[in-house]
Design a binder for these strands. Structure first.
Lengths: 207, 207, 207, 207
DNA sequence: GATGAATGAGTCTTCATTCAT
DNA sequence: AATGAATGAAGACTCATTCAT
């Protein structure tokens, strides 16, 4: 996607494409895929009605590319930061802090991704799953696995747990009170999760 | 709404209304509000296309009533069962077991509610919030509060925590693998939560 | 229509019919035939939706009967009063005064008749013409003809002139200023017409 | 609206717009606003059904523009010709002759305007009034007023009289016999009016 | 490549009319 | 005769998509 020595022409086209994708992000995020108006997207991007069709096959294709690009952006953002933490517990804190930061810094992207997660169209949900798969693996393989190996975390089913950690991230960062802020901050969420994960937690009698 | 000695006529009308609501549940759940076809709903319920308008003002009104009724059904289902458990920890287990059971028994209702939670239309999200408010209170006041008072749970912010417990319920019960089953079962989820909630959890050094 | 010794039943039915016609008058007059809602008419008359079809074949049949009855009412009103004036000039004054009085006393009937005069449906315009034919004849034969015979009026084409007198009546009585009052009163209109009709008028050189 | 050196594109669009307006004139005039089918209008103009919405906001907007344009056309037609007559009496003759000529030459426009005059929708009646206001003023200020000043006409209430002259024009030119012709011709109508207007008319005893 | 007019399928909604009760 | 639920035809309007310029 990013080749070296891109010609000016290519750069120009990529810029147009990016403008269109951004306008689509806002429109799809605000009104949902079905209610979104593809002509409005083109015009919000500064072009006239037909232009979007010079860059994308159809409304659905635009949506799918948007899912892929926005998901990848989210993934890259998370991965880069999580990997900077060296130790499992710190990585887990970093995961939630980075996650909440992404929502705060990129509210439109976050909103788009969250609403798309439960989009009624299977094709879109599948695209979301595919897009989030690397993030699952990031949590499972680079946060939970090292924690297990070093004996800090007690993890029985890494994928299921990764799914829950993601669910908790997506749920808590997007569930907001009347003022538009999440009920909990990243640290509180991380601590909640950590209490459960620690090797010595739950060693007491259960129920 | 449910009066005793309802006349036959009233019962008949209520039955028609129910058929329409059920057809709407399926259609809205499957295709989403915008893509849903209101004529198809009427016909799926066994009537001709205009009939739905004898019972509901508009597509939007139908959606709002469906949210209210389905949400109330969910709430009643949960509340009745949760209250049967006498003790906080058991109540928490029951909460998740009942929640997962609802999803298993009423997959269409559950799917409808989940997808509506992130519907782009504010009016629908607000209706969902209003509908779920009693369930929040159920968790906060009848599960968490007793647990705090009896010293089993360590809870700092009951509402925020109730929100998280709900989020975890909705997220884990609706996030499914390829075979359509949740990654975790109710018990696993409840245990995860419980480990975090217990008074003596997290008493170790934090980070 | 009004037979002696009408049975109670017949009277009751006639009363219902009259209520329906009156409601139709208001609805058709206010919204026009096409926009009128026949169920609203039935309900405005105090009955439920289907009742109007027990008395009238169809919306169009109701309209045609309404035209006939309202037109006849207007005609009767005018004829009775005009005939009480014995002499042509007085009859002409009476014609306009009665006409304006009808509009003032029966604004809904008048409004209905006026708007129906130019209804786009030919069938309705023809019904109006048929209904107003006796009033034409009243003007031609009982106002203008006597005036010609007695040498007071100079009339070349009685029917054409009758048409104009009617036109002037209908136009002036229904053309209102911002406050809803006609620009001229009956007397002024009658005087305008009379100046033209008098035998010695226009004996001067024309153009 | 009519600029010099209009580009070809603009001319083309204006032509399309004109075709649509003409088709609307026929449809609205024939069937009335409510019964008119906007898809038929578009297709009668030679386009597919959606095209009309590229040029007009809605059915109602199309109607309002049609009233304005057709009314203005009528007004221009009348004004140009009436002003060519130099002297009041001649102007009055010209007014009726021009008016009848307009109806003969532009029967569809005339029919549309007449039926719209009594349209049940207030918005349309108001638009008609606004459109006809210059014609009122033409009669009052450029026909009646000069006649008063030169002592030929006896006019007490110029606006009320202008209204009556307009009413007489609209009524007589549109009231037709079975063969579709007006009962009177322009000259007869003008003479009728003139007899009433002349200074020495009606100087005899009144009633 | 950009434009934006034209297309026409699709859908919500209204409402005259029917008919079982 | 009265009711009012059911019917389904009809129509205003939207908008994804095409394509000539």
């Amino acid at each position: 996607m990013t080749r070296i020595a891109k010609s000016e022409r290519e750069e120009f086209l990529a810029a147009v494409r990016h403008k269109l994708l951004h306008a689509a992000l806002v429109e799809f995020g605000t009104r949902g895929f079905e209610a979104a108006n593809i002509n409005s997207i083109s015009q919000a991007a500064g072009f006239s009605k037909g232009t979007v069709y010079n860059y994308f096959e159809s409304k659905e294709a635009l949506m799918l590319e948007l899912i892929a690009e926005t998901g990848a952006e989210h993934q890259t953002y998370m991965q880069e930061r999580v990997r900077q933490a060296s130790e499992p517990v710190e990585r887990l804190y970093t995961f939630y802090e980075t996650g909440f930061a992404f929502v705060a810094e990129h509210p439109r992207e976050a909103h788009f991704l969250i609403t798309t997660l439960n989009n009624p169209r299977i094709a879109f949900r599948q695209a979301m799953q595919k897009t989030y798969e690397p993030m699952f693996r990031l949590v499972a393989e680079e946060v939970l696995a090292p924690g297990m190996q070093s004996g800090v975390f007690m993890v029985k089913q890494p994928m299921a747990l990764a799914s829950m950690l993601m669910t908790i991230y997506l749920g808590t960062s997007s569930t907001v009170d009347e003022s538009g802020k999440p009920y909990m901050d990243a640290r509180q969420v991380a601590e909640f999760v950590l209490r459960s994960l620690r090797e010595d937690a739950g060693t007491r009698e259960e129920k």
